[in-house]
């Protein structure tokens, strides 16, 4: 943590200075172009998604806007243009690396592999990978899935996770893959799969939006616990310092909890459903002590 404190201190020191000329990396880019580009997701419910007018909204969009405010203050430029760029799980890392986006406000798991290419803000959400099933199926645990078709989405970490569980517990699933979460859920809905393994916040959103939410349930112990964080470019201490300071501050003052309540415990657009998704203990602990630990540190028991 000392390294982080150093960063924080240097960021604070920098922000005490007056001249903009001192900035480098992303902050310099933002200052030069007078614009900041946020990478957003179109259907990462309710972290980052589009409302009925195709406007990006969500918990992480709000967090990012707070960071944008901090950037404006830091650069003493209240008129930064904020651009939004839709990204997918496929292109978010390359787009961050190549400079298309400056902050990714989606639902990206912070893990060691990704840290080779990008950096992360302190964790702002913790998701549990679990499974959605039809209540009528009576399935309550992973052990019930032997020989049965189980859905997950192409190009997500859950694919490898299922492989790991299959091996670890010697259960033989018949994996089926949807090209996006909507397709994977449709597989569950149409009985192509008996379970859908995915991040629980996404599953909760899909169930709440489905034709008959009461038919489905989230069951089983988490297959994995994953810290979800806003992503930024690597090797950019100045910008990282600013982002970390901003989010840590929000966590400590309770601003972050307020945002959480707004998106997870109250009716949200477009249909005004309420996810009723109480804050996990892991996230409560993070609110008290923010950090950017990777997923590997959450799943050490396995």
């Amino acid at each position: 943590m000392t390294k982080f404190h150093l960063l924080l201190a240097s960021a604070l020191l920098c922000s005490l200075g007056t001249a903009q000329a001192q900035v480098d990396g992303t902050l310099k880019k933002i200052s030069d172009t007078k614009s900041i580009t946020l990478g957003i997701r179109e259907s990462s419910f309710p972290l980052s998604y589009l409302d009925a007018n195709q406007k990006p909204i969500g918990y992480h969009i709000d967090v990012c806007m707070a960071i944008v405010e901090a950037v404006k203050t830091r650069l003493q430029n209240p008129k930064l243009e904020v651009k939004m760029q839709a990204v997918t799980s496929q292109n978010r890392i390359p787009l961050m690396v190549n400079g298309t986006i400056d902050l990714e406000c989606g639902s990206t798991t912070n893990n060691l592999d990704r840290q080779k290419q990008v950096a992360f803000a302190p964790t702002t959400f913790v998701t549990n990978v679990r499974m959605a099933v039809k209540k009528a199926s009576g399935i309550t645990d992973l052990d019930h899935l032997g020989g049965k078709p189980v859905a997950t989405t192409t190009g997500t970490t859950s694919v490898a996770l299922m492989r790991a569980n299959e091996k670890g517990k010697s259960i033989d699933f018949k994996e089926v893959y949807g090209k996006d979460h909507a397709d994977s859920f449709l597989m569950l809905e149409t009985d192509r799969a008996v379970a859908f393994v995915m991040d629980d916040n996404l599953l909760a959103g899909l169930i709440a939006n489905s034709k008959s939410p009461s038919d489905y349930a989230l069951v089983g112990a988490p297959l994995s616990i994953e810290p979800i964080a806003i992503m930024l470019r690597k090797d950019d201490p100045q910008f990282k310092g600013l982002v970390h300071a901003t989010i840590s501050d929000m966590a400590k003052t309770g601003a972050l909890t307020k945002l959480y309540n707004k998106w997870f415990l109250a009716p949200i657009p477009p249909k005004g459903i309420n996810l009723n998704f109480a804050m996990s203990d892991a996230l409560k602990a993070l609110m008290a002590k923010p950090n950017d630990n990777p997923a590997e540190m959450y799943n050490t028991k396995k």
Partner: peptide, 20 residues
């Protein structure tokens, strides 16, 4: 690449309203 064409717009809407 996340450009919102006819199909993508419909998919987003399908996801949002659970009517894929």
């Amino acid at each position: 690449i996340g450009a919102t064409d006819l199909l993508k717009a419909a998919e987003n809407a399908g996801m949002l309203y659970g009517r894929t």
